[in-house]
């Protein structure tokens, strides 16, 4: 059986909120290392990969591998019933028909119990190769969100160029063009504002802004976002969570013929 107690229901709410517009029906794969999710969007352009490690829960118990097939719209409806500082416990039997969600108020004696019917989801699992990326950029998540939202007003696509000069986000559209360049930057008082650029080779790639704006819905999960790029491979957009947990998005590039 699965029993996973999360001190902050809000964390799970934010994760589901961040991915629900990208993927609809997902298997939450539970085993003794934690709860993982991998899902592609309908057009097979983007991939979501979430890992909530067992250390993020207290207690965490999962005796055998259980796949919880859940519709994220249904899950969102139930998670709305949790208050942000509630404690969340996920429960399921070994061969479950339902997943149970228990919300407990830390301050009062209220206990709310909900269940969601599970679905049989035949999901393709993709192997993501270990990649030595040509460029890795860590930057404030809010800054990345701002850049993507600003540039989508002008164009469908953004080119991300990483060179010795820094990282340049540039777009061209019908009304004109836009570009934002960031350089490495250390803020001693506010390290969450740091921009760190590690580059082993110059990288230049083009991506759909629609997807990047969608990924940025995860901005509330982490102060910083990490962008990993290599020429002609998918972009990795990573939001680190506590206890070595993470929410990762992969986006296939646009490539000229």
């Amino acid at each position: 059986m699965l029993e996973a107690r999360l001190e902050q229901a809000n964390l799970f709410k934010k994760v589901v909120d961040a991915i629900k517009d990208l993927v609809q029906d997902c298997n939450f794969d539970c085993n003794d290392s934690g709860i993982a999710l991998q899902a592609m969007d309908n057009s097979h352009v983007a991939l979501v990969s979430m890992m909530l490690r067992s250390e993020s829960f207290a207690p965490f118990r999962c005796d055998r591998n259980i796949a919880l097939g859940i519709n994220l719209t249904s899950l969102t409806k139930v998670l709305k019933c949790a208050q942000s500082d509630d404690i969340l416990t996920l429960k399921a039997e070994d061969a479950p028909d339902v997943v149970e969600l228990v919300f407990e108020s830390a301050e009062s004696d209220r206990i709310s119990e909900y269940s969601i019917k599970l679905m049989d989801i035949d999901q393709e699992h993709l192997g993501i190769p270990e990649t030595d990326y040509g460029a890795t950029i860590s930057m404030p998540a809010a800054e990345f969100q701002r850049i993507c939202r600003d540039l989508i007003a002008l164009s469908e696509s953004v080119s991300i160029e990483c060179s010795k000069e820094g990282v340049k986000f540039a777009c061209q559209g019908d009304i004109g063009s836009g570009a934002v360049t960031l350089r490495q930057h250390t803020n001693v008082d506010k390290p969450e504002m740091n921009v760190e650029i590690n580059m082993s080779e110059p990288v230049s790639l083009t991506f759909s802004l629609k997807y990047l704006v969608n990924f940025c819905k995860a901005s509330g999960l982490s102060n910083q976002v990490r962008l990993c790029l290599s020429n002609e491979v998918p972009l990795l957009v990573e939001y680190s969570l506590a206890n070595n947990s993470h929410l990762r998005f992969y986006l296939a590039p646009k490539i000229g013929d």
Binding site: H44, V45, H125, L126, G127, A252, P253, K254
Partner: peptide
Amino acid sequence: TQNQRSILGFFSKK
């Protein structure tokens, strides 16, 4: 012109 690739072209099915 730049064409949108599929993620399936990069990651293999397990």
